[in-house]
Design a protein around this nucleic acid. Structure first.
Length: 473
RNA sequence: GGCGACGUAGCCAAGUGGUAAGGCAGAGGUCUGCAAAACCUCCAUCCCCAGUUCGAUUCUGGGCGUCGCCUCCA
């Protein structure tokens, strides 16, 4: 089983092997905590989660770093309007980010470095770049000299001529040598002091530019060369391109060996969801509309391949919720069904084949949608076998192994249900009483009532089962 | 203007040079007090045109359409 990943740098799927045997160093671009993350942001973050989970499945230990950008122009603006410091302004959004990640069941990264806590590392790197003449000071600001880095544009495949032809580069008010030179350090303005957004540096008091934090913090936690660097496609240019320029000019080493970029999420109109464009949807919005975070998770990682665009829609979320429901139902059924006398040997063999095929799909550039499709096909077969009483002890073990394989990525199957409220339990008992006395009208009334409150009941030979259901139809 | 992606059933979506996984929705059944769940059956020739080929949805060219990046952006 060979893991192959699509490397943006080469535009091809490549066999993946980390620099250090058995250990993957991975840096992923995290949130700018100036606002609540929208579902598009969350898609990227869950993509990182999928990557790290599959690396673990493939037997690698991971050191995963995800930065928190807690200083940038938007934060400065907002903090100013709010009359507070950037550190205070950012707090609730940072907390919301971690809440989102938890309810979407993303595994925690090993490190979540904050930009403002790594100013010295950035200052060091900028000093090195100035010394090497890859950067220059202009009126208190420091810029990276793109002319000093011939490889610039290799990742995004944009050449300098193309950039100029864009003609959208604003007329610059600063003394940059070239319009495409980008800021490493911005001179402090008086108002920055009140916001707590100014630091001393050999080249003048100020604050860091956006890109330098990733170069400095990845070096601090992962060293000069990363195995994997990933982010949304929209970070490819200029952000990732700039990171490469800074890091490689400063360290004289390959910065990241593999670049993974996840496609964006579109809103209902089919256009990219973005904060600046106005309308965007947060996890909180979806939950308020009755969607289960587990369905949102499934939708974001399993509905479509990470390199294809997806459109957020109620229908798609509902389909995702149904798939989650089916998976959970199946897992539950396999677990609670007593082993049959007969064990269908063919079924066990097929289960092993499906497990292998599932793994292969994931190894092929993380094709989770394909893997899920294969699994669902088999689940139908397994359900039929359960109906027919052909699932014995061996088959149960095999099927549970398949479920575990899937849940290693999905993590929506074994996620535990919230406990039953005492009142709901009482109502179920009451309904059972009504059924025993054949008062079906009353029994149905109770069931309907529970359903409207998001609890579905199923009568079966071995008792009443309940489960939470999506309130969205 | 430059660079790029995509266009598969009502919806979402995987995929391959040899006549198209899966999920949702829908229809009909089995089971059940009724439901639900589960299972069974039904439901597409892959945007258009031309070319390469024994054969293309899959390769090449053109067209149409949608979208992205080139500017803050996951």
């Amino acid at each position: 089983m060979t893991l192959r990943l699509h490397n943006t740098l080469t535009g091809a799927k490549e066999v993946f092997a980390p620099l250090e045997e058995g250990h993957v160093r991975m840096y992923t671009c995290g949130p700018t905590v100036w606002n609540f993350a929208h579902v598009g942001n969350l898609r990227a973050f869950l993509f990182y989660d999928l990557v790290r989970r599959h690396l673990n499945v493939a037997g690698y230990r991971t050191t995963h770093v995800m930065n928190l950008t807690d200083i940038d122009d938007r934060i400065l603006d907002q903090a100013m309007h709010a009359g507070t410091t950037i550190a205070e302004y950012v707090k609730p959004y940072e907390a919301a980010f971690f809440e989102n990640m938890a309810s979407l069941r993303a595994e925690r990264a090993e490190h979540y470095p904050r930009a403002t806590e790594h100013i010295p590392e950035m200052v060091d790197m900028i000093s090195t770049l100035i010394k090497h003449e890859n950067a220059y000071v202009a009126d208190g600001d420091v810029y990276f000299r793109i002319a000093s880095f011939p490889k610039y544009g290799a990742l995004s495949h944009l050449d300098r001529a193309g950039l100029k032809a864009g003609a959208r580069v604003a007329a610059d008010k600063y003394d940059k040598e070239s319009v495409s030179d980008f800021a490493l350090w911005k001179k402090a303005h008086p108002e920055d002091e009140k916001l707590g957004a100014a630091w001393d540096a050999p080249f003048g008091r100020g604050r860091p530019g956006w890109h330098i934090e990733c170069s400095a913090m990845s070096k601090r936690y992962l060293g000069d060369t990363l195995d994997i660097h990933s982010g949304g496609v929209d970070l490819m240019f200029p952000h990732h391109e700039n990171e490469i320029a800074q890091s490689e000019a400063a360290n004289h080493k390959t910065f990241a060996r593999v670049w993974l970029h996840s496609e964006f999420l579109a809103d209902a109109t089919g256009e990219k969801m973005s904060k600046s464009a106005g309308g965007f949807t947060t996890l909180r919005d979806l939950v308020a509309a009755g969607h289960d975070p587990l369905a949102v998770r499934f939708f974001l990682i399993a509905n479509a391949h990470y390199r294809s665009r997806v459109r957020l829609s109620t229908e798609a979320l509902h389909a995702a919720a149904e798939q989650v429901r089916r998976l959970r139902e199946f897992a539950d059924r396999v677990k609670r069904t007593p082993a049959a006398e007969t064990d269908d040997g063919e079924l066990a063999k097929r289960t092993a084949e499906v497990r292998a095929a599932y793994r292969e799909a994931l190894d092929d550039d993380l094709n989770l949608p394909q893997g899920i499709g294969l699994a669902f096909d088999h689940i139908r077969e397994a359900n039929a076998a359960l109906d027919a009483g052909r699932v014995g002890a061996l088959n149960k073990v095999a099927l549970l192994a398949l479920i575990d394989d899937m849940d290693a990525h999905l993590d929506v199957i074994r996620a535990e249900e919230p406990g039953l409220a005492a009142e709901v339990e009482r109502l179920i008992a009451e309904r059972e009483e009504a059924r025993r006395s054949r008062d079906f009208a009353r029994a149905d009334r109770i069931r309907d009532d529970l359903k409207s409150r998001g609890i579905a009941l199923e009568d079966s030979r071995d008792g009443v089962r309940w489960r939470r259901i999506s309130r969205v139809t």
